[in-house]
């Protein structure tokens, strides 16, 4: 497993306590798992995602990721409607390990209230949380 200092944590995304990231682009927020989460989970073998059109409230469980011997729930950091899911993950769940901020993204959401993103952490706040 990676040391905290080796984690890749981009500056241009927001972080949650449960190790998701969120990034706004236009009026759509893309959500994925961060480097810490994918590293802790180990080799991911399956990603369960909702369907486009489903709506969730901030903090809801919207899916799960599985390694060989563990399942972790994933939580949505912002309320809204799912407009797209990453269908490549069905055949290639390893994308979450290999490219968690790019090709391994999970869902795109049309948020109800963009300001909810302000509740999330920036890189430094997140690092402080990890270091406890």
């Amino acid at each position: 497993m990676k040391e905290i200092n080796d984690l890749i944590l981009p500056d241009d995304v927001k972080y949650t306590k449960s190790h998701e990231w969120a990034k706004i682009s236009g009026d759509i927020v893309t959500i994925g798992l961060n480097d810490y989460a994918q590293d802790q989970l180990g080799e991911i073998v399956f990603v369960e995602l909702p369907e486009a059109g489903d709506t969730f409230s901030k903090g809801d469980e919207f899916g799960s990721v599985e390694s060989v011997k563990a399942v972790s729930e994933i939580y949505i950091p912002i309320s809204g409607e799912i407009v797209e899911i990453n269908e490549d993950l069905e055949d290639a769940p390893e994308l979450v390990n290999e490219s968690c901020y790019d090709n391994g993204w999970l869902i795109k959401v049309k948020p109800e209230d963009v300001s909810e993103l302000n509740d999330l952490m920036d890189k430094d706040e997140y690092l402080d949380m990890l270091k406890g």
């Binding site: 073998v45 399956f46 599985e66 390694s67 060989v68 011997k69 563990a70 399942v71």
Partner: peptide
């Protein structure tokens, strides 16, 4: 095995 009780327990 992630479908099974020894990993997913109550779920």
């Amino acid at each position: 095995a992630t479908r099974e009780q020894h990993i997913r327990r109550e779920k």
